[in-house]
Amino acid sequence: MAARPRDIPDLYLAPVALDLDERLAQFEGRTDDEISHDLVLATNREPRGTGERAELALEAVTHLVDTHGWEVGWCPRGLRMSHDENELVLGVPESLRRYLADPAADAGR
């Protein structure tokens, strides 16, 4: 049986997921350099390694998005939204996945 909303954050699942998915879609087809440039513009910081790229990408994707109590973070399958025992994973464009996983990009920075 499908879980029913139990509180206000549960009711906001769809709008929050749609906002985050729209943000993720902006990275579709972008090169590593373009994504890096986008993250610098969005966060005013230059990523200095794989871990920091993931951190800044999360900051850029969630910037000005009211998550209404949903926690957002990376997982192996994509961008995980969680609240209490509920969770939803949004897919990540291949271009962003490649950028976040590419340790070779660290050598050029």
Rank of each mutant, 00 (worst) to 15 (best):
M1F: 09
A2F: 11
A2G: 13
A2L: 15
A2T: 11
A3M: 13
A3N: 13
R4G: 14
P5L: 02
R6T: 11
D7I: 00
D7Q: 05
D7E: 07
D7Y: 09
D10I: 03
D10R: 04
L11W: 12
Y12R: 15
L13I: 10
L13K: 14
A14V: 14
P15T: 04
V16N: 00
A17R: 15
L18M: 14
D19Y: 07
L20Q: 07
L20G: 12
D21P: 09
D21L: 10
L24N: 05
A25S: 14
A25L: 08
Q26F: 08
F27V: 02
F27C: 08
E28V: 05
E28S: 12
G29Q: 02
T31G: 06
T31R: 09
D32G: 15
D32W: 06
D33A: 13
D33E: 14
D33P: 05
I35A: 03
I35Q: 04
S36Q: 11
H37D: 09
D38R: 13
D38P: 07
L39Q: 01
L39K: 01
L41I: 12
L41Q: 13
A42E: 02
A42C: 02
T43I: 00
N44H: 12
R45M: 04
E46V: 06
E46W: 11
R48E: 10
R48V: 05
G49R: 02
G49A: 05
T50D: 06
T50F: 05
G51S: 12
E52H: 15
E52S: 08
R53Y: 10
R53P: 09
A54F: 06
L56W: 05
L56E: 05
L56P: 02
L56H: 04
A57E: 03
L58Q: 06
L58M: 03
E59H: 12
E59V: 13
E59P: 07
A60H: 04
V61M: 01
T62N: 01
H63F: 09
H63K: 15
H63C: 09
H63Q: 13
L64C: 11
D66F: 04
T67L: 00
H68C: 12
G69Y: 06
E71K: 11
V72H: 02
V72P: 06
G73F: 01
W74Q: 06
W74A: 05
C75D: 15
C75W: 06
C75I: 04
P76G: 02
P76M: 00
R77Y: 09
G78R: 05
G78H: 06
R80M: 12
R80P: 09
M81P: 12
S82L: 04
D84C: 07
D84E: 13
E85C: 10
E85F: 10
E87W: 12
E87I: 01
L88Y: 08
L88K: 10
V89D: 02
L90D: 06
G91M: 08
G91K: 11
P93Y: 03
P93T: 03
P93A: 04
E94M: 11
S95M: 01
S95H: 07
L96I: 00
R98H: 14
R98S: 13
Y99L: 03
Y99T: 01
Y99F: 15
A101T: 01
D102K: 01
P103V: 12
P103W: 05
A104I: 04
A105N: 07
A107G: 06
G108H: 13
G108K: 14
G108T: 14
R109Y: 13
R109D: 11
